[in-house]
């Protein structure tokens, strides 16, 4: 029973979504399913927040190593929640100036907006910036020409990287016009457009078929492992 009900919900919702893409009559049903998903996700968020609170509170209660950070997490969470839900500092919407809560939560002057703009965005950018270093370290370790395939990949990567820099233009600028296709910048475009696109499409076709088959397995109830291992 515990398995049958969710399975049927999934199957029906899935078919509705599928049909709504083709049959206008079911479109609104499809939208309803989408709405239901959003509602469920919103309810689940309470569970998520609960889990966050529980894990961190337990940490504080047990005085685990680094429990201070857990406290900070919870305090920040509470502050953001209060200023966001309470729309503190939010100027009222110009259309309804008498309703204090009518403004957008991250409108100018709101604390929530301020937190977003001046705390979250810079922190996020910092994390993102780390990526450059990770790319460098991964490339350094991974690009070793130890077999034919690796050599091919390495030389292709080299052409593309050079072709995207001015050095590439300078290096092969002397090539006459009739051989301009061999200029690094053109070669790099050519590789990206032809070989890369081709390879990518092969993967994408595979993925598309995979997605279709996976969806079908779930819709037909053949695959129930998403609810936990089959038996």
């Amino acid at each position: 029973m515990k398995r049958l009900v969710p399975m049927w919900i999934a199957i029906i919702a899935g078919f509705v979504m599928l049909l709504s893409a083709f049959f206008p009559i079911t479109e609104s049903l499809g939208e309803t399913v989408g709405d239901v998903f959003n509602v469920v996700a919103a309810i689940a968020f309470i569970l998520g927040a609960g889990s966050l609170a529980k894990v961190n509170l337990a940490k504080i209660s047990r005085r685990d190593q680094g429990w201070g950070y857990a406290a900070i997490t919870l305090i920040c969470f509470a502050i953001t929640l209060v200023v966001g839900l309470g729309k503190i500092g939010v100027p009222p919407n110009t259309q309804f100036p008498l309703l204090a809560w009518s403004g957008e939560k991250n409108a100018d002057g709101s604390i929530f907006g301020w937190i977003y703009e001046f705390a979250l965005v810079p922190i996020t950018s910092t994390m993102f910036a780390l990526l450059a270093f990770y790319v460098a370290s991964a490339a350094f370790r991974a690009f070793r020409a130890k077999n034919l395939e690796a050599i091919l990949l390495l030389s292709t990567a080299f052409i593309i990287l050079l072709g995207r820099t001015f050095a590439g233009v300078v290096l092969t600028g002397w090539l006459p016009d009739w051989a301009s296709g061999l200029r690094l910048e053109n070669l790099s475009v050519y590789i990206m457009q032809v070989f890369n696109t081709a390879g990518n499409r092969a993967i994408i076709i595979g993925i598309a078929l995979g997605v279709t088959a996976t969806s079908l397995r779930i819709l037909l109830g053949v695959d129930r492992s998403w609810m936990g291992s089959g038996d």
């Binding site: 993967i203 595979g206 995979g210 996976t214 397995r217």
Partner: peptide
């Protein structure tokens, strides 16, 4: 890779 990932559950189930 892509499709293998999609095939994983079928593969693992062995059914």
């Amino acid at each position: 890779i892509g499709e293998e990932f999609m095939a994983a559950s079928a593969y693992l189930s062995g059914e």
